[in-house]
Amino acid sequence: MADLQRLSLNQATVQNWSVQQAVEGCVRHGIPSIALWRHKIAEAGLDASVKHVRDAGLHVSSVCRGGMFVAPTTEERRERTIDNFRAVDEAAALQADSLVMVVGASPQVAIADARKMVSDGLAELVPYARKHGVKIGLEPLHPMYAGDRSVLNTIDQSLAMASPYSADEVGLILDTFHFWWDPYAYEQIKRAAGRIFGFHVCDWIVPMPDMLLGRGMMGDGAIDNHGFRMAVEAAGYNGPIEVEIFNQALWNSDGDHVLATVVERFTKLV
C-alpha cells in the first residue's frame, strides 16, 4: 500500500507532545515529514521549532492553522487578519508546503455573510502570502461544522473560493474525514487537479463518539482511505500524506504506541 516515505505526522495525532517530542517521535519511527500546529509552535517558540525540525532533517508538510475569518465585529475580523499574517510568517520560517486554512463560522453571522467574510479575508491575505512564498490551502470541513468552524463544506465550493487566484497560490487540503460522505467526491477530486496542496487521512468511527474528538485510526471505521489516495494521485498529488486524528483516547495513550500503529496502518491500508 502506501510508501512510508509519503507519511507525515500531523501533530494533532499526538496532541500532548511538544514540538520537540513530536519531532523526536518521527525520527524514532522513520516518519520523514511533520505538520505542526501553531499553538505548539507558540509554546516552543518559532526559532526553536525551526531548529528542532531542521536538526532532525524533517520536511514540514503544513502549518495548522490559519483562517477563522468569520466574526461578528470589524475589530474581531481585523485581529484575525493580523493573526493570519503571523501564521504566514510561521509557515515561511518553517518552509512548510502550505498554510492550512480552517476558514471559520459563527452562529452570530448568517452563512452567506460568513462566506463573504472568507472571500474578503483571502483577498487581503493572499498578496501577503505570495510575497512570503507561502501557499494557502483551503480545507473544506464536514457540514456538521458549518455553524462554528467552517462555512466551506465541499470540495466544489472550496474550488470556487480558490478560483480567483493562481493554482500555485491557493489550493485545497483534502481530508477524508470531511468529504468521504459526498457522492460527488471522486468527481470533485478530478476537478481539483492542480490545486491539491495536501491530503489527510484518518477514519470515521461508527457510531461517532464525539464530533470533534472522535476520529479513528485508519481501518477502524467507514472511510476508504486507499481509494481516495488513488484518486488524489490520479489528480496529480504525490506529496506527503498527513495522518491527522483528533481522539482523546489516543491522546491519553502512549505516544510511541500511537506512532507505531500509525506506521502500520498507513503502510497497510492507505
Rank of each mutant, 00 (worst) to 15 (best):
E79I: 13
F69H: 09
V60Y: 11
Q95P: 08
E76C: 03
S119C: 01
L94Q: 02
I111E: 10
R115E: 05
P127I: 06
L94D: 04
L58Q: 10
A91H: 07
S106Y: 05
R80P: 03
D97N: 14
A71F: 10
R130V: 07
G57E: 08
M101N: 03
M68E: 12
A71H: 09
Q108M: 00
T74D: 15
V70N: 04
Q95N: 14
K116H: 05
V70G: 01
S98E: 13
P72G: 15
V109S: 03
S61D: 13
A114W: 00
P107N: 02
T74R: 15
E75K: 14
K116A: 04
L94I: 00
D83M: 11
S62N: 14
V126Y: 08
L94T: 06
R78P: 01
V103L: 00
V109W: 00
V109K: 05
S61A: 15
L125P: 04
Q108A: 01
V70L: 03
R77V: 06
T73V: 05
A129E: 10
A114F: 03
V63M: 04
V60N: 10
E124L: 10
M117G: 03
P72E: 15
H132S: 07
T81S: 09
S98M: 14
A92L: 09
R86S: 11
Q95T: 12
V60F: 09
L58G: 10
E76S: 02
L58R: 10
P127N: 07
K116V: 06
L94S: 07
A110Y: 00
A91C: 02
S106V: 05
S119I: 07
P107Q: 02
R77I: 03
G104A: 05
H132L: 12
A71C: 06
Q95C: 11
V60C: 10
H132K: 15
V126E: 05
K116F: 02
V126K: 15
S106M: 01
L122Y: 11
L94W: 03
A87D: 14
A114Q: 03
L99C: 07
E75P: 06
R115W: 00
V102H: 04
G104M: 01
A123M: 12
I111P: 03
T74A: 15
K131M: 08
Q108Y: 06
H59K: 13
V88L: 12
P107H: 00
A105P: 03
Q95S: 15
V63G: 09
R80E: 02
M68V: 15
V102F: 07
E75Y: 12
H132G: 05
F69R: 08
Q108C: 02
M68K: 12
D113L: 02
D113M: 01
E76R: 05
A87P: 09
S61C: 13
G66R: 13
I111H: 00
L99S: 05
A93N: 10
H59S: 13
V118R: 01
I82P: 03
D89N: 05
V70A: 00
S98Y: 12
L58T: 11
C64N: 14
D89E: 11
L94A: 04
S119Y: 02
V118T: 06
K116E: 00
E79R: 14
A114C: 02
G57T: 11
A93S: 14
V102S: 09
Q108P: 01
A93Y: 11
